[in-house]
Design a protein around this nucleic acid. Structure first.
Lengths: 334, 334
DNA sequence: AGAGTCGATTACATCGATGTACATTAGCGG
DNA sequence: CCGCTAATGTACATCGATGTAATCGACTCT
């Protein structure tokens, strides 16, 4: 059925190895031999069998990307970027969804499928920072998104604390004094929620504003619906609020939704800023201010680190924090 | 470095083949032998080398999913569904982005990477329907999304014409008489744009309403920004409009954006309905009515068809049209 | 002209798992 | 107890490409 190197070799009247040499670009092949082989390849429509090559070389050219859910815009956009960057390195991307579930995250880390990928980009949500031992895997691993201290793996993270601080300060600068925060995770000790809360508190401190627990709106999943609900709960408590920092854009967009329903003017009565700067933020009503965490840069860096790990050229774990900026739009224009 | 079957075999005191038999679940293995092997596997942390297995069996357990762009919510959600369904079949998914570019679409169809996947789910945007010859590929292929007549491949499509017709009728039923359509592709002969326009015209005809070319808003890419622009252009022409059928939700959300800016009341002055029923539609302001094309069903069916093709159990190309329904929300409530 | 080089090519082993063919043992009816 | 089938396991070839070592010329150098 399939055309193999042997067929090409016979057709071109050379050995199989010579065909291999031509295919892989080995320099010492006489031009006329090379041409003969190339003609045979074209005529037969030969393509290398990547399984065989993988077996022989111990590499597959595939990297894994494990993330919570593709239907979350931030991760979809991240995946988009990762795929593009990987392609520039001649790699393809196999995506696995963990649903932010601890068991699935562990499964992904140790699955048989890891034997199929040269390395893994992993965006953990459920694993706790003191579980770094679980990250002692026997293959190239680069973590995305959170800050995990002293782990054995490379790590590319967005500036969670600083970004949140900048977002909150942005609200302060626009005159907000009673700033709520949406998306807190109560029991957690690490992860974006904790870090962004930390940044929020730091900004309040910078401005000499008190931290008021009544202004903290918890939300387990960071979806629009939970953002809408958290905002509603907050308004229902009668809390006096003039600014909202939502820990991601989905939450912020959900909050905008609630504010719209309740006829609260944004940004006049309450200013809103999000985090992630997903494409949608630009098109909400009003357009949403947000912290742009450098998604492209994260993807580029992460793939780069992984490629270096795969090549085996590094030993010590590395941390990279991507640059961020505050994208100011109408939702905080006052 | 890596543990192979030989190591396991030595440890368990059996032949390599027996280990293989245990691993693959061959029934005629004495329980005590099986147990010995399993213990050895556990102790050594053995995992099969999938490259070797692929080489031997001619299957990789990977399917490809080629789509325009992951950052478009519809495709992100589709990919999400496909990955989930594929997992139930023991398959993993390799995603490739074509950017709706003709050259890239061809590249994806004939790339070397196809030797790495057992089959391909392909959502073409740029290929024209008379190019079905290009789909004569030597591997299992299932097309998603559009209607291509007489192609040699299986095909799962949403009810473009009927869905668009139902959406437009939905507007008519709510009293709209001057219904604009957004997202037309002028030169095209096939593809969603043409089909949805066809459905739109059919609904007008059903209602005895005239078709007015002035109410057709072209938009190349189906993004929020183009939707916003198309809506703005339409309003600028001074066209008298009381309803908008947008060919997808992104366009519709963009249109809502423009209408909001222009202080046009939705749905009172202009009712708006979209297509795709992405998650966001539920959370826009006002919540967007949309045609829900049965994404889950499409993913499920497509993977099912592909699996059957891979098994080689079918010959004739099959067409499946997924069920749809109109999700009525505030943007058309009047 | 003979030794020594370098370039081009080949034969062969190998990566790790699995299908095939066969050997051995066990179980069972007669 | 013999003979036969079924269960259990083994040896070996094989999937397709590539690394290694060896071969064969042609060419340079002295």
């Amino acid at each position: 059925m399939a055309v193999t190197m042997r067929h090409v070799a016979e057709r071109a009247g050379v050995s199989v190895k010579t065909v291999s040499n031509v295919v892989t670009g080995y320099p010492h092949v006489r031009p006329q031999t090379r041409e003969r082989v190339e003609r045979a390849i074209a005529e037969l429509g030969y393509q290398v069998n990547l399984s065989a090559r993988s077996l022989r070389q111990g590499r597959t050219g595939i990297i894994g990307l494990a993330l919570p859910e593709l239907s979350l815009p931030y991760f979809a956009e991240l995946a988009d970027s990762v795929i593009r960057v990987a392609e520039q390195h001649g790699l393809v991307v196999l995506i696995e969804q963990t649903g932010a579930d601890r068991a699935r995250e562990l499964e992904v880390l140790h699955s048989e499928r890891r034997r199929l990928t040269d390395g893994l980009l992993f965006s953990p949500l459920a694993l706790e920072p003191d579980e770094t031992a679980l990250l002692e895997v026997g293959y190239p691993l680069v973590l995305l998104g959170e800050r995990i201290f002293d782990g054995p793996a490379d790590h590319v993270t967005m500036a969670n604390v600083e970004g949140a601080r900048a977002a909150t300060t942005h609200l302060v600068e626009r005159g907000c004094r009673r700033i709520a925060v949406l998306g807190a995770h109560e029991g957690e000790r690490m992860g974006s929620a904790v870090l962004r809360l930390e940044g929020y508190r730091a900004a309040l401190a910078d401005a000499g504003l008190p931290f008021d627990p009544a202004l903290v709106g918890p939300a387990g999943a960071w979806h629009r619906s939970t953002g809408a609900e958290a905002m509603a709960r907050l308004l229902d408590t009668g809390a006096d609020v003039d600014g909202v920092f939502a820990m991601n854009d989905a939450l912020a967009l959900g909050a905008l939704h609630t504010l719209h329903l309740r006829r609260v003017a944004v940004p006049q009565e309450i200013a809103v800023i999000g985090f992630d700067d997903v494409d949608d933020a630009r098109y909400s009503q009003p357009p949403l201010s947000s912290v742009s965490p450098g998604r492209e840069q994260i993807a580029r860096t992460a793939v780069q680190l992984l490629v270096e790990r795969i090549a085996g050229s590094v030993v010590a774990p590395r941390r990279v924090v991507a640059d961020f900026e505050v994208a100011a739009r109408e939702s905080t224009a006052r």
